[in-house]
Design a protein around this nucleic acid. Structure first.
Lengths: 407, 407
DNA sequence: CCACTAAGTAAATAGCTCGAACATAGTATT
DNA sequence: AATACTATGTTCGAGCTATTTACTTAGTGG
């Protein structure tokens, strides 16, 4: 369904203005302290155009002026910065075991956050719960005097491009859920951009978009938790996410790593998730759903069967990372999710496998940097907030995320 | 290297004009017979803007007017068509065993083609050979009275984004080759767009871009030949190709399918290419490099060891397709390359595996269509020509492919 | 104190799209 | 056959945006 007509973007004259305004805003956001002259040379615009663009962004409260830079022989330019005090963004993640909420400044700085245990229930009940928690977050003093730009929700399952529907979340037991529509009644006065996306994709977006300075041209986020998923964000201006028609892109948990291996809940055999995932580790070590996996394993990390299981899972993750490197070839890989807290018993085999097998194809050229997020609690929620920001800056024309058709 | 500055596209006023012109041209190319009114409604432009845009495209010889359409109650609109007689595009592929050349009309129709056996030699000698063959093709009567728009070359190895360098072609024995620079002296008078890209990516681009009517939102091309590679093209206007930083995206031949399996020439074990590729089939059946694989196997298709080898290879391909489905989730998959000529002994296991395992994740919703190209001889070369066309239409601003900085 | 250089601003100019009125080509109606 | 009707395509002036050019401003170095 959705758009059978192909959206051919042809430009209104106003569109050009917005394009230039948002380009200026992006540049300052990415490189704080740029001057008007810097922008003019980099964006190939004239000083006059940049001047008027900056002026309107200053008036709207998106930018603010800073100090004079030191002169390079002539009049020194005035530094421009993102105005980080005027707006805020809401991001939320419905995880399999926790609800996580953040309110962010445009820079990505977390103003207020909250997380609480969660046991999967119906979409309706979850919406009510999340709605209440968000209401509380909104009323906190850190954000109450700011203007809200919208809300992004990250969910543990595929969300197809152009639709605000969670197709399937096996670990929640959900199917074809219009989550934003369920959530809206609980936050009736919240205006702005409303969007939802897959958890790993939101995280990937945020990790790339909220970085300042030199940014990699693409970034792959691998989320290793109860299930295992990934998201790839590409491009500097407003990164594009690869979603796939059904939103299945990045469902690496169900790629086959071991032909003829164990049966997966998806029905196939030897899926990556049967080797590396929260549920497969629980299954092979006999840890109940009710107990927290990390806490349950923490005192047992020296036991031989635990070590062996974690090492095997780690190696499988390393293989998975290598395969991703050869199919997506991101400029940077970020590894997050609750399993990263298992520590080196699990991570070391993964990293070692990846490092040693990675560069055999191209020789000893540059390596793909791999970063492990130490605390990934709010990464996805913050990423969803970042998607809201990108939407707010670039307007609904950008195909960055999926807005809900809220009436 | 290349661009350390992030190319922030901010719009010149002229840019807007070109944007609208090329959007109009794309729409007519995709849906032949559109009227000005159709364009106006679909592109959200006014009749006046479309009118002037069409007029200038008519004058430049890109479009031509057709018949009046039947009236729907009022004045009938005049059909517009791509002018297929004025321009032509050159595409070439350096394969491991053949050189393939085409000259295409803007519609993708092949005007003239040529292929000849090739034995890998130095880049310089290959450039000379290809240059000569192209010269001959250009002088053929079908194209000699048309205007050339440029040349695209498809190569069997990774080409990184933004660089016109073939990083590595294991099956040719090449490394870090600036092929366009080598080719240029042999075609000094050939102006227009010069670009090069990976063979599977060119093919993917062409298969998506040259289609008319309703087009899938993304397309994955899997090229199974001496090696095995893939390319993913996305988007309707001018499709984007996923390349990855080092151009390794789609190097699925070196994803690990069988941990601890056979050693691959890349140094790792159990790569997909050890299970399904021209060279692995040759190795396991003892067929010499000098003989054509397809011809050598044709009379032996009933032999048990051949059947078993091909069935195993087919199943591995099916697994690979499934993994691609779960990492890239394209709207359509096209399977090409010389191995498709091995027929059902090889293809059936692949298709069956893919069909039966595909839809376990989302239930019985829509299936991803998989098409096998019967004759894929010129698919990559034609795809490279398509990349040239896209470049010519959208201008160098589009990040569609990699132009060489020819002086 | 004065040239010099580069950043930012102001006013005039050029160019594109838009809106509204108008001409055009068929069809349905009388 | 003449006329009303409807939707397509065109023309022309208005509005808006980016550019050009000239000018002001803020530091540096002699």
């Amino acid at each position: 369904m959705s758009t059978s007509y192909q959206h051919q973007k042809a430009g209104d004259l106003n569109f050009l203005k917005h394009l230039n305004r948002s380009a200026i805003l992006e540049m300052v956001r990415r490189v704080p302290g740029l001057t008007r002259a810097d922008i003019a040379t980099q964006a190939q615009l004239t000083k006059a155009t940049v001047g008027s663009g900056v002026q309107s962004l200053l008036q709207q409260g998106w930018l603010k002026e800073g100090d004079l830079q030191k002169s390079s022989g002539g009049r020194p330019g005035r530094a421009l910065h993102l105005n980080d005090d005027r707006h805020y963004l809401l991001g939320a993640e419905v995880g399999v075991h926790r609800l996580r909420l953040v309110a962010c400044a445009p820079s990505g700085r977390v103003l207020a956050s909250h997380h609480e245990p969660y046991t999967p229930s119906t979409p309706e009940a979850t919406a009510a719960l999340l709605g209440g928690a968000l209401q509380q977050l909104i009323s906190s003093p850190e954000v109450s005097n700011r203007e809200n730009l919208g809300l992004g929700v990250a969910l543990p399952g595929p969300v197809a491009t152009g639709e605000a529907i969670l197709r399937r979340a096996p670990n929640l037991g959900w199917r074809d859920v219009h989550f934003l529509e369920l959530l809206h009644p609980h936050l009736p006065e919240l205006k702005g951009v409303w969007l939802m996306d897959n958890e790993a994709k939101s995280a990937a977006f945020g990790e790339l978009y909220l970085r300042t300075g030199k940014t990699p041209e693409s970034l792959l986020y691998v989320s290793a938790g109860t299930g295992i998923g990934s998201g790839m964000a590409e491009g500097s201006h407003s990164p594009l996410l690869t979603r796939g028609v059904q939103g299945l892109a990045g469902e690496i948990g169900h790629t086959i790593l071991q032909p003829g291996g164990l049966y997966c809940h998806c029905g196939n055999r030897g899926c990556a998730e049967t080797l590396v995932s929260g549920w497969s580790i629980r299954a092979s070590l006999g840890i109940d759903e009710k107990n927290d996996l990390i806490q349950a394993l923490a005192p047992r990390l020296q036991e031989p069967d635990v070590t062996r299981t974690l090492r095997r899972a780690g190696e499988a993750l390393g293989m998975l990372l290598l395969n991703l490197h050869h199919t997506q070839n991101p400029a940077e890989i970020v590894l997050g999710g609750s399993l990263t807290q298992l520590g080196s018993t699990f991570l070391e085999p993964a990293l070692t496998y990846f490092e040693t097998h990675q560069q055999r194809l191209l020789g000893t050229t540059q390596r793909v940097p791999l970063r492990v997020v130490e605390d990934s609690t709010f990464v996805a929620a913050r990423g969803a907030a970042a998607q809201v920001l990108a939407r707010a800056i670039h307007g609904p024309s950008s195909q960055t995320a999926h807005q809900s058709p809220i009436p």
